[in-house]
Design a protein around this nucleic acid. Structure first.
Lengths: 230, 230, 230, 230
DNA sequence: GATGAATGAGTATTCATTCAT
DNA sequence: AATGAATGAATACTCATTCAT
């Protein structure tokens, strides 16, 4: 599998930028419609109304086209995360996590088809290193957010906590848009948030032995439960 | 992308069964080493020491080879889940979830390379329907397990709870073996388990405002925390 | 293109003969349905309910299967021709030619699909020599027939006359069953017969200038003409 | 058998036209030498001194190469027929038919090898519809020619007469170049012409009853004739 | 920079044929 | 004789990439 190199050059001219934009938009459309295997550079060029040569002017190879799409996706995610991390008017960790989950869900629910593809097929072509990089950046952003609430965290390592949180949220959001199960958005938000809180705030032994926090409340909770069925 | 049909014939003769076994083993090796795109049927045949024709005798096309690998993976997972679900000597939900997480982790940590591939590339080729089927079966198995502890669940819909649990555990296990972060196996087990418990036992509002178990206990918990850093 | 050898052995056992019969029948069906390119020995064997090995017991290669069909066709044609040639109660050449045309038309109109194939595709695979042989045999048979009326023939060479007659009749019969134009059988019979008579009885120069039989009668003939339109 | 589509694009540039020309010339050579089955696209490309890709740039598949050859053949035939039909200095029908036969013979005798192939193998791959189209066009052209002499024709349907004439001439010309019997060109011309005249100018009953040259015997024959119709 | 015609390595798949049982 | 699993040569076709214009 060819290494998906970065774009050949960063276009500075307005026209070039537009061209790159058009090419990527077209690529996205085609990938969404025909899948990775059904996408080819000649088709992209033709549909984008440019010549193959022009595509190769900006993208060194086919995979770099897809990688660019992925890159953008990762950047959007990061932007969203940092946005949320930057909101200082948040009451507590729970609220913050919930905000984060909501924001990422919303991001994915825009152009769900494309995101579905990005979350699915691209795992396939992104080379280890760049994928790790993206993940690392996302982890780092989440670390920012968590830092503020570090006193509430049961984890001694902020980095680990961030990695776990990142995986959990992104995985569950992906799973949600891929499977599109009959769960309401509110419900899935709740579920993911609870999990993350469970992850961040429970201690190994605490949760598994004495369970005051579950025991006591569980009954009443269930009694009050009015969560809509899936 | 061609529909990955089921194997052409189910070999009943000992020799045939062995052949299929060899072909799949070889495919796995090659896929692990060269990735999906780098795998071709002629290579598989050659490396397996059989003729291409023989490969096509049992597998109608390239993708069906990979699909067969995936199928087996899904079956192993199911077997493990049902195994755990069947263990009746389990103290409580927490313990059961932990058992499950541990078992699935262990499964993935055998032949980690192959599982890495299976969890990564195969999303890419498995056609929607069969992928959904696999997921559905896994959800169903987990539903079995949860049923026993349904009185502890904060969710009104067992099915939803099962889907969420399935996604969470499998996603996190995958993330763990793919990223192989410096988290100990014990730690990741703990983390996933806590998340699932958080997911299953927290109620929407409960967990986010008044919960004593977070506030009150968190400090002491952290104080006692001796979790090794990632 | 592989030389279509003759059948490997002429089966003498009843069972074997039946097998050969079944194989050929099946081949015919498949060739009619899927064409030459869509016919393969494994399919023939499977459909005939025998093993490929058995097919190869009697037919050295794929083409020999088709050749056998062709051979049979040629033999039928010959038989028909000789039959007609043997009828001694025929008034004159015209009547004899008409009998011949009618008989060959009838032969082709039985199993028209198969004959269509035989007349079409098999030209393609029959190697020069065997095709020539078939044609030569047919010419020879027709020569027999013509010999009796040699005094009426305008041709100095009986052999040439026979070849021309053979070509003309077989070509036109083929054309008729292939194109299946809206010409009645009676009409086509008439037309072919007239052509052959024209061929056999006109003399080079005669026919183009002075021939009374054309000149004189043509007008009146046309006047009376009430032949149904095609 | 794959549908032999039309050429992918009609080359307008001089260079492209030459390329197509070269490819077709090469194809013809190879088909003549190795037959249809022995012709493959890679070989064609190699021998033509272009890349396979280039072949596929202009011809969507192997069969379309052959179909293009066939198309050209049909066009040549049509051109020749229309040419002859357009000659107004012709004395009579006989002369006109003779001219036509001669012209078509001459056409086939140029590059006899190629025409041999075209007349033989291509029946095999030309899909019904396109073959019918070609034949129909040829019939139509011949209809043009016959129209002028329609007063001499014994057939009430010009269309039928044209079809019969077309079949007869083309079949016999084919037969002649395929079998290459020891018949002089002059002789075959004569023979075909006479046949066609016989076909066109004899009337069903006329030729078989009252014709002076037949006269004597015909009546008694027909009187006794009670052959069952097919 | 842009173009797109030309390239040709690469690959899935078929099927006639064999031969051990 | 019959079987049919195994063989593997053969081939149509694609598509990423280049480069002369």
């Amino acid at each position: 599998m060819k290494q998906a190199q970065l774009p050949r050059k960063i276009p500075t001219q307005a026209r070039s930028r537009m061209m790159v934009e058009t090419i990527l938009k077209t690529t996205a459309k085609i990938v969404v419609k025909h899948g990775y295997a059904g996408t080819n550079t000649n088709l992209v060029a033709q549909r984008a109304g440019v010549s193959v040569g022009s595509v190769y002017q900006y993208f060194p190879n086919k995979d770099s086209l897809i990688a660019a799409l992925y890159e953008r996706h990762a950047q959007s995610m990061n932007r969203v995360i940092l946005d949320v991390a930057g909101q200082y008017e948040v009451a507590d960790l729970q609220a913050h996590i919930k905000l984060l989950v909501r924001a990422l869900l919303q991001l994915h629910l825009q152009e769900p088809q494309l995101h579905r593809l990005l979350d699915k097929d691209f795992a396939f072509l992104s080379n280890e290193s760049s994928e790790h990089q993206y993940k690392a950046r996302i982890s780092a952003s989440i670390e920012c957010l968590l830092q503020r609430w570090s006193h509430q965290l049961a984890h001694s390592s902020l980095q680990t906590a961030a990695w776990l949180t990142a995986q959990m949220i992104t995985s569950m959001v992906k799973a949600y848009i891929l499977d599109a199960p009959q769960i309401s958005q509110m419900h899935i938000e709740q579920a993911i948030s609870c999990s993350v809180i469970g992850l961040l705030c429970s201690t190994p032994d605490a949760g598994f032995n004495q369970h005051a926090y579950l025991r006591g409340s569980a009954n009443s909770v269930l009694a009050r439960s009015s969560m809509p069925a899936a």
